[in-house]
Nucleic acid binder design. Structure first.
Lengths: 147, 147
DNA sequence: CTCTACTAGACAAGCACCTTGTCCATATAG
DNA sequence: CTATATGGACAAGGTGCTTGTCTAGTAGAG
């Protein structure tokens, strides 16, 4: 195994693809067929609380106009509500609706299913090492690459 | 550390984002500023030999029309040449030009740089475990998720 | 309080990339 | 020879992002 990094790089991409596709498939299976991965990343920020559209834009690494459209979509489909921000009359606070929380939970379940597959394949010990190593590599940065 | 899989899932995505952005940045630094990740995935298939546009389409999980446009782009920019297929008068064999090979090499270098960062951060032993575990998870499937 | 600089977010136009639908030339099975 | 399948081109359309511009509201300096 002459690892110059390329094999590992390809493996990272394939594993990430497995995860994204797994979550997507799991969401569809649970009835959420109008949600894309980018929406999920937006949920992460919105569920953290105190989120404006501009915050979502930064979190996703896109322009605030694009984030506005994305949030529009989520509002239209009933996942998110816009509320006035008591501390800033320009801003609108974004909060998840019940459907939004249900979708978040479904995404976490689907992610857990994929992780469970990995654990079964690797064994608990190796899986834990993998999880730890990956955790150590996480840096503040984009969650979503420019694909 | 109560890992229900979600933290690990997020870590996988962040690490993959690091890699994709790292390759992209490394390519730009080396003068290849008209190449997107999808082009790199096409290079993988084309450099494997005996590639038609339809093969590239399957490999990327897109329609052959889209693959045709993508290949057009690469031909226009001088990365790829179309040659007649001696075994099929309809098909055109795709081959990398010198510039195409140079770009492939640059991408591998950039990926290796990112992997090197990981190795420095984790230490050689943990890194090797990570690489092995990831390698064990690779399945035949999409290299590129529906993002 | 006022002036200035900044920020949230909406509106508009445009571009990149992908899709579906259609067509032709060639290949291949019967 | 006929019927079906495939490689690839052409055309039209859609989605998601971009840049550019605007208004309304915030916030710091004086």
């Amino acid at each position: 195994m002459s690892d110059d990094g390329w094999d590992t790089a390809v493996a990272v991409l394939r594993v990430a693809a497995q995860l994204v596709d797994g979550i997507q498939e799991g969401l569809e299976r649970r009835g959420f067929d109008d949600i894309r991965p980018a929406h999920g990343f937006a949920f992460v920020r919105i569920s953290a609380g105190d989120a404006t559209t501009a915050d979502v834009a930064v979190h996703l690494g896109i322009t605030k106009q694009a984030a506005g459209q994305l949030v529009d979509h989520l509002v239209t489909r009933g996942y998110v509500e816009r509320r006035p921000d008591p501390r800033d009359a320009r801003a609108r606070l974004l909060v998840l609706t019940a459907r939004g929380w249900a979708c978040t939970a479904a995404a976490e379940e689907a992610a857990a299913e994929t992780a469970e597959r990995w654990k079964r394949r690797l064994g608990p010990s190796t899986y834990r090492h993998l999880a730890t190593a990956l955790g150590a590599l996480v840096e503040p940065g984009r969650l979503r690459p420019t694909w």
